[in-house]
């Protein structure tokens, strides 16, 4: 129900627009400072706090694009897309798409890919834990998997990403200039998988065949069907080696 004195709506609009509502300003006690200065403290807390939330969720944007650019983009996003709920872990999941649509970001065409990778890592951190195939238990389940008696799916912490850029190498270079500069020509597609093992989130560059296989499982195919589809396009796919690696990284849930 709207308030008779609806300062909450007015204050929210003012904080998200950088324009102080005159009617609201008249209702604030100055007490030695202007009402606008007092509102400025809240604007600093609200917008500045959310900028820090975004930069923490997408930590490589500052080293890649610079502090001013990263903060400016974050602020633009926040004013256009304020949080809808108190659960900030869900906030700004679409930031990669937002960056990709900004004209100013054209100078950094790899930025949205980095944001997409860091979003998957964030989601992996907060994903629910479910029973997984591990090196310790996999032998016990293999007969049931072979007999198609056990449905295997991707661990909810696993995420897949395709990019025109070598995102992991780029991030390593951004964090440590002693790392070799990556090839940024953008001519070859790169494939990535984010996984979580116990309390550790990891990202991996994977092959096109591995990506195709995992993507098929993500879309609902069982292991046999996914392998069949993958081998059609990649007859040299070494499934056994990949399977060993995936089980080690808790990629499959059941």
């Amino acid at each position: 129900m709207p308030l008779k004195f609806d300062y909450q709506q007015q204050m929210k609009d003012a904080l998200l627009s950088n324009h102080d509502d005159v009617a609201l300003m008249d209702e604030i006690c100055a007490d030695g400072l202007s009402a606008a200065q007092r509102m400025g403290i809240y604007r600093h807390n609200v917008v500045g706090g959310l900028v820090e939330v975004l930069l923490a969720r997408y930590p490589t944007l500052v080293p890649l694009a610079g502090d001013d650019f990263a903060r400016g983009m974050a602020q633009r996003y926040i004013l256009a897309h304020p949080p809808q709920s108190a659960n900030l872990n869900d906030y700004a999941a679409d930031y990669a798409a937002f960056l990709a649509a900004q004209d100013e970001a054209a100078e950094f065409p790899f930025l949205s890919g980095i944001a997409a990778l860091e979003n998957l890592e964030h989601l992996a951190y907060y994903a629910a834990f479910v029973p997984c195939l591990t090196l310790e238990n996999v032998d016990g389940f293999l007969p049931r998997i072979e007999a198609q008696d056990l449905t295997v799916r991707l661990n909810p912490a696993v995420g897949l990403l395709q990019s025109a850029y070598p995102l992991r190498d780029l991030r390593a270079y951004a964090e440590d200039n002693n790392c070799p500069a990556p090839d940024m020509s953008g001519g070859t597609p790169h494939y990535f998988m984010v996984s979580r093992r116990d309390f550790m989130v990891e990202s991996h560059e994977i092959s096109a065949a591995e990506f195709a296989f995992l993507n098929a499982v993500a879309e609902g195919a069982d292991i046999h069907r996914a392998l069949e589809q993958t081998l059609q396009n990649a007859p040299d796919f070494d499934f056994t080696a990949s399977w060993q690696k995936w089980v080690e990284h808790h990629v499959f849930a059941f």
């Binding site: 300062y7 709506q9 204050m11 929210k12 904080l15 706090g49 949080p83």
Partner: peptide, 24 residues
């Protein structure tokens, strides 16, 4: 308060100490 309309602002914002706000 933090929530108004379509936005949940990431701050603990001040209440006007009125009977109406006390009811809410």
């Amino acid at each position: 308060w933090s929530m108004s309309g379509n936005a949940h602002l990431n701050d603990l914002l001040p209440l006007a100490y009125t009977a109406e706000n006390l009811d809410n």
